[in-house]
Computed example of a mutant assay.
Amino acid sequence: MTKRKHQLLTESERDQILAIPSERGHLARLYTFEPSDIEIIGARRERRNQLGVALQLALLRHPGITLAQLIQDKGAIPHDLAAFVAEQLGLHVTDLANYAARDQTMTDHARELAMRAGLRGPTRADIPFMIEAAAKTAWATDKGMTIAIGVVTALREARILLPSISTIERASSAGRARARKQAAYALIADLSAEQVHALDQVFDDAGGMSQLASLKTIPVAARPDHIRQILDRLRQVRKIGISPDVAGRIHADRFRQYVREGRASPAYMIERYIPSRRRATLVAFLLDLEERLTDNALEMADKLIGSIFTRAKNAQARSYATTSKNVARLMLIFRRTIDALTDAVDTGEDPMEALDAS
C-alpha cells in the first residue's frame, strides 16, 4: 500500500482502477453477452478473431479500455476473464493464440467495436475535461482514489474510453491542486488587509512560543485562572474578526479537513505553507478554535459553579450535623427534667429541690 513520491495513488489503488474481477458471479454480471453481441462476434471467421473480438467487446464494457491497453498495463490477459468469455462461445482459451501479436488487427477491431458502442478513444483534448472532473470531486476530499474514480466516472458518462492509469492519475492530481486553490481562495477572498496582517502575526513570538502555539494550548483543569486564560484567548481570536459565514463557502468536508490540518500541524509547519494555504488553514482553525474556546469556557464555568454549590452543601451538612447533636443534648436534659418533676410529685418532695438534685 506504499505510495510513490509525489504520486496520488498507491500501487494497489492503481491496480484497482482498471481491475478485472476474477469471481465468477462478478464476471457473469459484467461480461455475459447478449444475442446481438454473439452476432457481432460470430461474424468473424477465425476462432482466434472471434475470441479476440469477444474480449475486446467485454473490456470496452468494463473497465472501458481496449485489449491492447490491458496487455500493456497488466502484461497479460487475465485467465479467468478469457476462460469465461471463451466458455460462452464454445471456444477454448488457446484459440486466442497469436491474436495479441497482431497489433494492427487488435487496433482495427477495437476502433470498430467502439464506434458500434458509441464510444471513442481518449485524446489530449480531453485532459482539461478530466482535470475539471477531478476538481469537482476534490472539492470535498483529498483522497486520491476517490478523485481518480470521479475522473473515471466522468469519462464513462461522456462515452470516452479510459486513458492510461498514469494519465488518469496526473489529471486527478492536477484537479486536486485546482480544488485546493479554489477552496483556499474562497476562505480568504474577503479578508481585509488588517485581517491578513493579524493572521500573519500569529506566528510572532509570545513569551517563548508563537502566538499560534499559545492559542493551541487550551487549559483543561477547572480553575478561575484557567477561565481567564481561555477568555483571553477567545478575545484574541475574536479580535481578528473572521465571520463564521466563511465556513459555508466551501464543502463541509473540505472545511473540516482544513480544521484537522490546523489542529494537527505545529505552528512552524503551517508558517511554511504558501500564503493562500497558510491563511486558509488559519481561518478554518481559528473559527473552530473560537467555538471550542467558548464551549470550554462555559463548561469550566459550570464545573466551578458546581464545585461552589458542592462545598456549600457540604458546609450545610456539617452545620446540620452539629445542630443535631445540640438538639439531642437538649432533649436529654428535657427528659431528665420531666422525670425529676414526676418523681417529686410521687414522693411529695419540693419540685425545685428535685430539679437541683437532678
Rank of each mutant, 00 (worst) to 15 (best):
W139K: 11
L57C: 05
L155M: 06
H62F: 09
Q72D: 15
F129T: 07
S173E: 14
F84C: 03
L59W: 07
A174T: 13
Q182H: 14
D103H: 15
Q69Y: 08
A177V: 14
A140S: 13
H197C: 02
L119I: 00
R116K: 10
Y99E: 12
I165Y: 10
R180E: 15
R178M: 15
K181H: 12
P78M: 01
G90Q: 01
E87L: 04
L113W: 01
V151W: 05
L67R: 05
L96P: 07
I188F: 09
Q195E: 10
S192W: 02
G121N: 02
I188A: 12
A179S: 14
T167A: 14
L161Q: 02
A114P: 01
G150T: 00
E112A: 10
A171H: 09
A184Q: 13
I71W: 09
A54V: 06
A133C: 06
D190A: 10
A76G: 04
G150H: 00
P128A: 08
A76T: 10
L60Y: 04
R178W: 11
I131F: 08
T94P: 02
Y99I: 05
I77D: 01
R120D: 05
A171M: 11
A58C: 06
I149R: 11
P78E: 02
T137E: 12
D190H: 14
R111G: 03
R170I: 14
T105L: 15
D108A: 11
I147D: 06
Q195G: 08
A83G: 01
A154S: 09
